Simulated scan of single mutants.
Amino acid sequence: MISAHPISPIATQVWLVIEPVDMRIGIDGLSQRIQHRLGRSPCDGAAYAFRNRRQTRVKLLVWDGTGVWLCQRRLHRGHFTWPDIAAITHPLTPTQWDWLITGIDWQRLSAPAPAHWQV
């Protein structure tokens, strides 16, 4: 299980897809993106999270063993924190996922201390 908020009984990993998507895209379109752009199977046991450009909406695509779930979350204020990296995807830990879906900057969980900071 990924988090205290169960995604799926069999999802072992959440992958953030870095590139924003049009939120009108449904299960088939997102599954095609996973297959063609990521080179993965949407039925590989992982959950795939997609975001819109404004980072106010997230769609999660996950296979549960018999079918595909597509869940959406929208923040009314603020935005979801997404990594600014050149990679296509980024894996999240269960704790990072919990922070992300609440709109908290999950990247601060492992922020390194400033090298030259003194009291």
Results as ranks from 00 to 15, higher is better:
D44K: 07
P20L: 07
T12R: 08
C43M: 12
P112T: 15
G78S: 08
Q55P: 10
T12Q: 08
A11S: 09
F50K: 08
S110G: 14
G67P: 01
G65W: 01
P83W: 11
E19D: 13
G29Y: 10
T89Q: 12
S3R: 03
A47M: 07
R108W: 07
P94V: 09
H79R: 14
R24G: 15
W82E: 10
M1G: 02
C71A: 10
M1L: 02
L109S: 14
I18Y: 08
V58S: 03
A4V: 04
I18M: 07
A11G: 01
I25L: 15
G45A: 05
A46N: 09
R37W: 11
A46Y: 02
D64T: 00
V58Q: 05
Q96L: 06
Q13H: 05
I85F: 04
S3Q: 06
Q35R: 14
F80R: 05
S41A: 12
V58K: 02
I25H: 13
L16F: 13
R54E: 15
W82T: 06
I104G: 08
Y48P: 03
R24N: 15
I7N: 00
L38M: 09
D105G: 04
A111V: 08
G65E: 00
I7S: 01
Q55S: 14
I2N: 00
R24K: 15
Q13Y: 05
L16C: 08
Q35P: 01
W117R: 13
H5T: 02
I18S: 06
F80C: 03
R40C: 11
I88E: 07
A111T: 08
T95H: 11
I101S: 03
Q13W: 05
L70F: 04
W15R: 01
W117C: 09
T56I: 09
